[in-house]
Amino acid sequence: MADTAHSGTPARPGPMGRMSDLLWRRPGLLILLLILPPALWLGVIYLGALFALLAQSFFSIDPFSGLISYELTLSTYGELFRASNMDIILRTVAMAASVTAAAAIIGFPVAYYAARYARGRWKALFYLGVMLPLWSSYLVKVYSWKLILAKEGILSWLFETLHLTWLLEAYLSLPVVGGNSLSVSWTGTFLVFLYVWLPFMILPIQAALERVPRSMLEASGDLGARPAQTFRHVLLPLALPGVVAGSIFTFSLTLGDYIIPQIVGTSARMIGQAVYQFQGTAGNIPLAAAFAVVPILIMGVYLYVARRMGAFDAL
């Protein structure tokens, strides 16, 4: 066009060329085009659904007709505080907390080894080992654990072979963690949760540890700190954002899961199962919604406390 006179090369022909020129002149437009689809998806569909859920929790169900009454009320949240519902919440939080703690304890050394010592082929092997379980179907993994933990399963066979059946029996006779067999005990639920979510703990810790330069640990030793002190005063604080990131995964995934406790575990329900049943068979959408808000609140409190305790200071 007319302004080719100003530029060294002629304007590129065709609509694509003009488009490129336009985007080059207005980089903001390109960013807008890139960000718009995911923003729509996240904003409208995801946040919208979340908002609809939140709104539902402020309605209540008419006890006689079983119909939803669309008047704003806090009575549904009040129901959460009934003893049986509180049990569900406390049970789920206890499970999520113990799974998270165990995953951090098991995951840290693995991540530490991978970040500090593994090189080349060993590193590839580490990633493969950690990621491989994520490639197979979640249901397959859970059912195979049921086979491992069942009364006639691999684990009880192993105990029998080692003449340790009495040990397993003694453990199963313990209150709370025990049961008829491992596959119908809280221990079983815990083990499956731990297995399924462990990669989500290891990978963020490993990423955090990778960012800690070797000289930082050497400096601590140089200043007189024994390895245990270096761990406590330098390595752990620097890895803490990774641990917190991992624990967000393990904690929230455990809080919301409704399949694992259904397949492996006792008949006592967890939050996810309660949501599933209230919105399905029971048709009590408001209570299901109120239950679904609980993990969101817990995670909010968790992140707030983590921040106050300085978990993100090293970021």
Binding site: P213, A219, D222
Partner: peptide, 18 residues
């Protein structure tokens, strides 16, 4: 290292960021 009567100033300083 933690029992040696020496201290080091590192090339990248290695100050603890937290």
């Amino acid at each position: 290292p933690y029992r040696r009567p020496v201290n080091t100033v590192f090339q990248d300083y290695a100050l603890f960021p937290h």
